[in-house]
Write a protein that binds this DNA or RNA. Structure first.
Length: 211
DNA sequence: TCCGAGATTCACT
DNA sequence: GTGAATCTCGGAG
């Protein structure tokens, strides 16, 4: 198996010895496929020698050229140029004056298509996430159930725009197999154009899904 | 439980 | 100048 890497994380959920970093080819597939397949995968963030790990439970697809809700709809700009780069990189944007959101660039043809990570289930490094979110009473389920929340919890900001997800700072690994039946698709959240597209995916019944 | 307002920066028009 | 792929908080119901 390609991209097998030594275990970096002392986490019992990972099989001893090695975990599988998702290969580039995972991201180069059609965006909607990647959005669905990302559910149940683990996102790993290396931060000051510690590891933050979350299971992806909610995503949204943004189909660039074909999608008025996408930042890439009107073509390439300085802000969104990462979306038009190679799949498997991170597109981080700043919004509402105070929040960051993280997207995974997808598709083999560099058409500005990406998947927004909307929510994860915290698995490892929960204490650090609480600190990053500057929460006092640490409401466990409020840690990462929203795109801006998970960025803050994972310490992801504008500096990470363009980060390769095959790097060792931030990457995604194989995780849990999610049965097709448990994957729900609905309309996306917080947008005005293209709201009729059912391009939001989440794991049915998971308490860490936003909203 | 729900709704409205404020926060606050950046890219695009 | 405007509005944005959001979140938190306070106050009303």
């Amino acid at each position: 198996m390609e991209n097998r890497i030594p275990i970096l994380i002392n986490c019992p959920r990972f099989k001893q010895g090695a975990i599988d970093k998702l290969p580039r080819s995972f991201y180069l597939r059609p965006t909607l496929t990647v959005a669905r397949d990302l559910l149940g995968k683990y996102i790993v963030r290396r931060l000051k020698g510690k590891s933050l790990i979350g299971k992806i439970v909610e995503t949204e697809a943004y189909l660039g050229d074909n999608d008025p809700a996408s930042h890439a709809f009107r073509g390439k700009t300085k802000r969104n140029e990462v979306m038009f780069g190679e799949g498997g990189h991170l597109y981080v944007y700043f919004t509402y004056g105070m929040h960051f959101c993280a997207n995974v660039v997808t598709d083999a043809e560099r058409r500005g298509r990406a998947v927004l990570l909307r929510a994860v289930e915290p698995l490892e490094g929960r204490d650090i996430m609480v600190k990053n979110r500057k929460l006092k009473d640490a409401p466990y389920k409020n840690l990462t159930n929203g795109p801006a929340k998970l960025c803050e919890a994972f310490g992801i900001n504008g500096r990470h725009n363009g980060t390769d997800l095959l790097s060792d700072e931030i990457f995604i690994t194989t995780g849990e197999e999610i049965p097709r039946k448990q994957i729900i698709s609905t309309s996306r959240i917080g947008i005005t154009n293209g709201a009729e597209k059912l391009w939001r995916f989440y794991i049915s019944g998971n308490p860490f899904v936003s909203k």
